[in-house]
Amino acid sequence: MAANYWTSTQKQNWLFEPYEIADLREEIQKQHVKVVEQYPLPDRRLLFIFMKDRIIQLSKRLSFRQQCVATALVYLHRYFLFNAMQNVNIYLLTATAFYLASKTEESPHHIRLVASEARQQWPEYVPSDPSRLGEMEFCLISEMHSQLIVWHPYRSLTALKENSKLALTNEELSLAWSIINDTFMTDLPLTCPPYLIAVTAMFLAVIFVPGKSSLELKPTPQDLHSMMDASRFSSLGGRSGISTTIGQALDGSATALGSNGIVKQNSQPSGGSSIKAKTLAAAASSEKMQNIVQFLVESDIDVARMIDATQEIISLYEIWEQYNEKTVKDAVTRCIRGQHLET
């Protein structure tokens, strides 16, 4: 196992440019064009929201560390880089990803226990024979070339919390933690290093706080270890207007992150939005915001990539508002039963 991210298999083998991922997916579609057209599935992000909920559903009666959910979702991202979603029993794969992640994250469960719980939750989709989960585990490990260690943004967020100049509050920390959780529904775990995701989440949390009242978000202050070990996977997704609120907060923060990392102020918030006005006033008078700007410049963060990550997060929240569990479940069911993947 690598002692740090920079020498890890994740950095060497599982970090892609967006166009590379697009090429891989296009190739999969070409190889499986018939089944893809016969069983169309919703947007990939909606499917990952669905799978995240299934992991949490499965783990309700199993003790686990929150990081197991994140690791399982990364495993699913990696698997679907080389496999069509239409060709696998998503319920069985999701249970397998959680089982494997629980071992990787040192909170293991016996295969019979996980198989039994999955069978109880989804009896029509999960075979009673635990060996089927073992077979799927072998396939999952094989697709990832036995490279199972995942470096998450949580560790980088911990380091940011300890930076006295940034002076992150518990509220900002909790919001950043939730934003990081939500990034696992996007391609960011495959396209961005974990530290950049953490910095982006921290930045969004800081500018979001002044305008958050309209959504009545009141995160409970928590210790970092409590958040990591709690059997919850906090999220901002699914709240009405969340993407608009964050977008306005970004606009009203009076920041324009240029390629050189310099933050410039606008003269006034456009549109007269109260959220923009609040955020502009906070940014203009905030020593913290200036310290964040200085931090971005001194740390040589790839600001262009950070902007892309921010846009991807906002796009996720936009589509999340359209999420309908029944619609996604029906599409998955048609695919599984149509190809007899449940047997």
Rank of each mutant, 00 (worst) to 15 (best):
S146P: 07
R112T: 11
L41H: 09
D302W: 11
I197W: 01
I319S: 06
V263A: 10
L113A: 11
F98H: 00
T7I: 15
V297H: 13
A176K: 05
S214K: 14
N170F: 04
S243H: 14
N163V: 02
T310W: 01
D43G: 06
K52H: 12
T327P: 05
T94E: 05
S299V: 05
P127I: 07
K30T: 11
I141R: 12
S285I: 02
W177F: 11
V332P: 06
H225Q: 14
V126K: 01
L250N: 09
K212Y: 03
L160N: 03
Q67E: 10
H145W: 10
I246F: 12
L113M: 05
L46E: 10
A84V: 02
G241K: 04
I292Y: 11
Q265D: 06
P210F: 05
R337Y: 09
A282L: 04
M306Y: 07
H110C: 08
I313L: 08
V332N: 00
S142G: 05
I307R: 12
D23K: 09
T158S: 15
S243P: 02
A72G: 00
D187C: 03
G247A: 07
L236R: 03
F16Y: 15
E137D: 03
E20S: 06
L250T: 11
V199H: 03
Q248K: 10
Q29H: 13
A167C: 09
R78V: 09
H109M: 02
T200R: 01
C139G: 07
N170H: 08
M227T: 00
E105F: 00
R25K: 12
N266E: 08
I111P: 09
V332C: 07
T158P: 00
I180F: 03
A277G: 15
R25I: 02
I28T: 14
T245N: 10
S156T: 05
R334K: 14
E124G: 01
F16P: 03
Q268L: 12
V263K: 06
R25C: 10
D182A: 06
E17N: 05
Y79H: 04
K103W: 02
I28L: 15
A283C: 14
P42M: 00
E37I: 08
Y19M: 06
V303Q: 12
V150W: 00
T158N: 11
F80L: 08
K288V: 13
R155A: 13
K60Y: 07
S8K: 13
I179W: 05
A97H: 02
S174L: 04
I319H: 01
